[in-house]
Design a protein around this nucleic acid. Structure first.
Lengths: 132, 132
DNA sequence: TTAAATTAAGCACTTAAATTCCTGAATATG
DNA sequence: CATATTCAGGAATTTAAGTGCTTAATTTAA
């Protein structure tokens, strides 16, 4: 998973939800998020569970339950959310790299590295607070 | 398909194979490409079929058969190969864009557009000849 | 204390995309 | 002409993302 740049629905849900929860005084529950983001409740619940496990959110059951943020939004980078959901970003290498690759200058590796690095840099520069 | 940036194995095969075929005097067959690129013969055949159909390559069956390039490599952009294999590049929009999206500045759309545009620009600037 | 609301967690299903497999048709060579 | 080689194209398989459902645990509030 997570080769080169690929923003899944799950990552979109993760980022949007974290901003919404960070802006709210009260716990926000999965149904509310589902209505705001126009995504399935199930998928949202799954992503939120992940973010709870990683320690960015806390969750409360029962009526008035939902999710709250428990880490300073200025300290949560988009990159953190991305990796919490998709796992570490890695560059998909050309299998025939170096001596094995029949091309003198293998465009594939250079391109993959360039694009991945740009993506990572950008995601490491932005925090949840920047979008509140 | 082809949302945001995603370099599949198929695209890698397409670019590598086109360069190899462009550099060769004689037809190159799927088995030779398979050995050079360390990818399955079947997958390579599929990708090559596509590039024949689109008109960049010609194919010959039987012994001594294989693929040859029939368009000037200086006129084949990486972007052309990408779209021949994956279809048009499009930006995956946030479903709640504009009034619907609960975020004031939807990072998702901005980011998706920025990264996609960079990718397309780069792929439109490079030709097969640049890698021969 | 009971009922309703809500997250947690696991599993099976669906769907779409990527990849592999299979069979048939074309062709060069002896 | 016979045979081995090779591409073509559709079928089948695999893989991954997302959906739907079910049960359990927890908590509020009547």
């Amino acid at each position: 998973m997570a080769s080169i740049i690929n923003l899944s629905d799950a990552v979109s849900i993760g980022i949007h939800s974290m901003v919404i929860v960070a802006k709210s005084e009260n716990p926000v529950n999965a149904i509310q998020l589902s209505e705001m983001l126009h995504k399935s409740k199930h998928h949202i619940a799954k992503v939120m569970q992940r973010l709870v496990k990683v320690g960015y959110l806390d969750s409360f059951r029962g009526p008035t339950g939902g999710f709250t943020i428990i880490v300073d939004p200025a300290k949560i980078y988009l990159y953190d959310i991305y990796t919490a959901i998709e796992g570490e970003v890695h560059v998909k290498e050309c299998k025939g790299e170096g001596e094995l690759c029949p091309l003198d200058k293998c465009i594939y590796n250079n391109l993959a590295k360039k694009l991945t690095a740009e993506f990572v840099d950008y995601f490491k520069s932005q925090t949840i607070k920047d979008y509140m």
